[in-house]
Each structure stands twice: as C-alpha cells, then as structure tokens.
Design a protein around this nucleic acid. Structure first.
Lengths: 275, 275
DNA sequence: CAAAATACGTAACATACGATACAGCGCTCC
DNA sequence: GGAGCGCTGTATCGTATGTTACGTATTTTG
C-alpha cells in the first residue's frame, strides 16, 4: 500500500530516466518543500529543465503540476494535524474503546492551543475583565452548557454577567439591553444553528463585541465576531467533542480572574473572604 | 519578538478591518495550509474578495503574495526539520498564563484515565445504556453544566433522560418518580454541596443507582454511589478544573451511543436518518 | 556500425494567477 | 445633517507560470 508521494517515488525511481531521477532525488532531499514551489525553481534546483519536471510528475500519475502540488499539500496537512506526540504515548494495550478517545481529545487540545496565541487569549481576557459593559453568554444545543459553565464562574467575580437561556424569543428581547460597550460570548459548533447566527448578526448590528467559540470549520458567526476561537472537535465517536473549547473556556476564566485580581477589584477581595 | 507569521497575525489582527480579519481568522484556523494555495482559493475560503487577501498580506508587511507564500513555506520547512519543537506558539516567555494551565489540564486527564479502567467505564456505559429505567442528571453550582451537557446528548439517543434543574425543592419532588431501576448521575466537586449530598442520600434510600463524578478527594456522596469517577481538578488557577470530568463524560456519551448502536436500537437508526 | 527509439532541452504558447484602478458604500467626525 | 475618509468588491490588465511542440543529443538494438 502506497500512501505518500515519497513512497510512490521510492517505488518508481528505478524505472526513471536519469534526469527525472535527479528531479526525484532533489525532491526527496528536501521533501516536500521543493515540490511546493514553481516548476522553474524546482527545475533549477534539480539542475534539469522544466519539461523534465513535468514529465516527472506525469510519470507519478498526476495529470498536471497543480494536481501534484495539491496532493503534496494534503499530505502535509494530514501530517500537521496528527501531532508527533502520538508516538510518545504508547498505544493502548488492550485496544479498548477508551484510549483512542482520550488520545484524540488530548491531541485536539494541543492543536487548539497551538493555533491560539497567548496574546489572543490575553486580549479576550482583557476585554472580558474590563467592566465597562455587560457580558452575555449563549450557546447552541449541545454547547450551551459551556456557556453556562463560563457564566457561572464569571458571574462570581464580576457583576453584569448574564447567561441567555430559554427560547429564542427570550434572548431576542434582551438585545435591547445590548450596546457597543457589551460583550457577547457565543458557542457554536457544527451543525451551526440558524437561530444563533441570526442573533449574532443582530447583536453585531447593535455594535456588540462578539467572542466566538467554534470549531475549526468556523461558524458563519465568525463573520461578525471580534474574536474567534477555533477548537478541534473531531474524535472517534458519533459526536463531536467540545472538550478543547471547554479547556479554552477554563483558561479564559482563570485569566480573567487573574486580571481582576491584578486590578485590585474590591469584589475579588470580598470573594476571597468567602472561600 | 515575532518569529512566525501566526504571531504576526495575532499581533496585528486587532488593527485590521473586518474583512481582513476574516482572512486572518481563516488562515489561523487551518494554519498554514490555506496560505499555500492561490489567492482565489484563499479568498473564497474566507468569503472575501481577492484584493482583500492581497491587502491582508500587504498589511503583514509582504511586498506581494508569492513573498508571503515563500515565508510560510520557510516556516513550514523549519518546523518539519525539527518535529519535536513543532511549537506554533513558542512557550510563553514572560511566565505566560497559558501553557502551565494547558499542561496541568493534560496531566489531569492522563492521571484521571490512569485510575479509570476500561471495565469500569464499560460497566457504567452498560448501565446507562440499558433502558429499563429512567436516567436523572444533576450537578453542583459549577458542575451542573456538565450534567446538562451529558443530558443533552443522552436525551437524543434514549428516552427518559432528565436533567434536574432549578431549586432544590424542585428536584426533591422528583424523588417520587425514582426507583431502583433508575440511575442518578451526580457531579459534585469541592466544595461539596450539602443540598446535593442530602439529595443523593434520599435517592440512595429509594434504591436509585448513583453514578458520581467527583474530584480526587471524593465527595461524601461516594458513600452512596454505585460507581465513582474521581477526576483530577488541580490547575494553576484560582478555580478547580472540571475538564477531566468533562472528557470522561464525553467518553461515556460515546460509549453509550456505541452500545445502543450495537443493540440495534431503533431510535438510533431513526436518529441517524436525521443527521 | 547503422538505424531507430528514447531522452532531454530550447523556445514559443496559452492560461490562470496576482496586481491594480476605480467606483460604491458605510462610517465617523465636524 | 453633510462632508470626508476608509473599507470593500468588480472589472481589467500585465505577467509569471505551466504546458506543448519540436529539434538535437544520447543511448539502444539488430
């Protein structure tokens, strides 16, 4: 079974003429970067002419050069998505149903945070910590509990935190209270809910700053969002996983708390007296 | 010090107009693959026009699109050379707030699952999947969202799943409906809530099977519980983390779903028709 | 050793790609 | 409420890129 272009080349390099073999070796030497550049660059790097490069990729079975490049990119994307860490954690012994789930979840988290800079999180935390306006939280069918979780924590450390629950008509009425000083935190992963999108759009029109928690395919709400957090959700299960987003939420909760502590908010000191 | 394009984007995304921000978010979401494709593909993926993409890369400081792509490729090449250091986000320098939190959370999960056998999870899943009785879920002040999350999923794949919300007096009344064929899933971590403990005790007296999600110091409810899941909750934050319990919950949801599928439950087949 | 077949590069070609000019629109600030 | 500015998309343009045709060089084969 040949699953990568590198293997394909290794398989057929024996049957190639000299110049094409040079091309193959050049590609393998700095795999796969040269293949992503132009034919001209590839050809000069290999010291052959451009038609030779094209004949080379044709021999590998590709219709044209762009198709070859797409294939390389797909391979690269797949490689980047499955972190090397997988090899560090010994594969589960019993082949049970548990480990794959855990492994995938851990990977998702690492990936999610890899795409999330400290600065981004700090910005969002700062926005949530500055108490000029109100904070609203809402989620979709399965993600609303995450909104509740976050709301439950934020409400302890600052005033004017509201979780939008119940029927769509309920929250729509709350739009009246929202303005450009306010923040709306939305959780929305596939399949994206129309009602949430509509709501986000209206809030956006009112100038509300939207912080969106979504999956890597980005809810349409990203269009209106000031900040977007794209979490990985794929796991070997019938359901998508919200675990990565959950951890981001917890991280944000912690950051906001620390921020408010640093600001010396009286409320925090009072709260600590209660702990 | 900015060393990657991803950081550069995170740094400047705040100063960008809306459409360019969409471009930035799209790129970050599937970093860096989209950036290696053509302007046209990038623009349609982001839902903006191609000039916007070009303005976006210009704002990042690149003279033209090819230069931007080369830069991405160089970055990618550097990453591929040292797979171990594949850090998109370098460890935060200034005693960052993110990495320790993530690391601790990941550790918590590993630890939690290390103390959790496949058999234990399988038993619980089997108990939840056998639909002889009803399933009730409830949680504490901060963990109730986890109960909701689990309830939202289980309710899709089987009947008679109830999340107990609202005031204490509300659920107490539901005790009447509970019997020895029923299951009660409780989430309770420090500080353990008296109301929950009382409720668990009464349910236990009625013969209800209790599945307890708690922390490693075990809620007093463990005394009445048929199954206890002890998750690690310590993180470098002012709050405890429920992330490990969340992942266990998701794992269980997946296991129950699989179980029901294996049982050939009609409901599951019908559900899949809707997906 | 001759003749044919294959390999390879040069040069011309067509297309698709990135770049630019411009107009419409919404927003902000007097 | 009006003027100005900035943002964004449409349409157009030049060009770099992949592609192809063809002629020369090299190897292979009878």
């Amino acid at each position: 079974m040949i699953s990568s272009i590198a293997e394909l080349i290794a398989d057929r390099i024996g049957t190639m003429p000299a110049s094409e073999r040079r091309a193959a070796q050049t590609l393998i030497a700095s795999y796969p970067m040269i293949g992503l550049k132009t034919v001209a660059e590839f050809s000069t790097a290999a010291g052959v002419s451009s038609p030779t490069i094209l004949r080379f990729v044709a021999r590998l079975g590709f219709q044209n050069y762009p198709e070859f490049q797409s294939s390389l990119q797909d391979e690269l994307a797949a490689q980047l998505q499955s972190p090397a860490i997988r090899t560090l954690n010994p594969p589960s012994p019993g082949g049970g149903t548990v480990s794959p789930m855990l492994e995938a979840t851990l990977d998702n988290m690492r990936e999610t945070f890899r795409h999330l800079s400290d600065k981004q999180l700090a910005d969002i935390a700062a926005r949530l910590a500055e108490r000029r306006g109100k904070t609203f939280l809402i989620g979709g069918r399965f993600t609303d509990p995450l909104a509740r979780y976050m709301a439950a924590h934020l409400a302890v450390i600052q005033p004017d935190v509201f979780h939008l629950a119940g029927q769509e008509s309920m929250w729509r009425d709350r739009l009246i209270d929202m303005g450009k000083r306010d923040v709306l935190v939305i959780f929305d992963i596939r399949r994206y809910q129309d009602s949430l999108i509509r709501f986000a759009e209206k809030a956006h029109q009112r100038g509300v700053q939207i912080v969106l928690f979504t999956d890597q395919w980005l809810s349409p709400i990203a269009r209106f969002a000031r900040h977007v957090i794209a979490g990985r959700t794929a796991v070997p299960s019938a359901w998508d996983s919200s675990a990565a987003l959950f951890v981001v939420a917890e991280t944000l909760i912690g950051a906001v708390t620390r921020q408010l502590e640093a600001d010396g908010a009286r409320r925090i000191r009072e709260m600590e007296g209660l702990r």
